[in-house]
Amino acid sequence: MNWGVEQFARAVGLAQSGGGLVPRGTRVDVFEQIFWLFLALGTLVGAVVIGYMLYNAYKYRDGDARADPDRSTRVGELPGGGDGGRKLFYSFGASTLIVISLVAWSYGTLLYVEQDVPSEAEGIEVEVVGYRFGWDFVYPNGHTANALRVPRNETVQLSVTSRDVFHTFGIPELRVKTDSIPGQYTSSWFRAEETATYRARCFELCGAGHSYMTAEVIVMEPAEYEAWYANTTGEAGSEAIGARDEDRIGAPATPGGPATVAARGVVG
């Protein structure tokens, strides 16, 4: 678990030396920082509490040497409470303090993620439309593609909806996720720091092709991206990548029986 320790050290380091207490940065950064701190504290608390349980269970195990409890319970008595109320409240208070401070701390990041979207670099906006079983990415000029191409180090604003059922759009490696709901628009953002190819996928059960409802996310050098974008047009430029062509067959505008059959074909 060296990797974990490293991550944790980085998380704590960033939390202290970065922009104050509240984690900032890309979504990957803030997730890592919060997650590792939660994990460390959660493991600690869990180990202490479960350890304490086991210790007491062992210590007070029944044996020949143990006498009956001071005030043995007996059948037919009215239920009453045992001793130890004060200790109960101390522990309760301590756990409350831990939980509330952790969540309050993460709330600062929620505000940051929701409101202070980083805008150092000029960003781009893309509309994401989910359908059974694939994704359309619609650029401001009307260009529609099945792969999401974005420039490195720029903020990508996503506006997500669905053409048919409830989906959830997510790119796990970039820690971005939002529901894709028919008749509704949700928004989210991300920023990729390296040129690479990632995989976006659906996170809400949407039918037979759910497991295969993926799309490529291609992070490009900004200059390269600009060149590519300049060559796209709204009308003819719709590109489809590899196997995604087949999926589009399985997603007619009016889904129903045939869609299901087609989807079975894709999967089987």
Binding site: F35, V113, G170
Partner: peptide
Amino acid sequence: FGALVLFIIGGITGVFLGAVVLDYEFRGT
């Protein structure tokens, strides 16, 4: 006794989900 141990683990991992920023990533996983 085992149930309480398991519930403690379930409860602690639930606090993760209570933090909305983490919930965003855990959703659907």
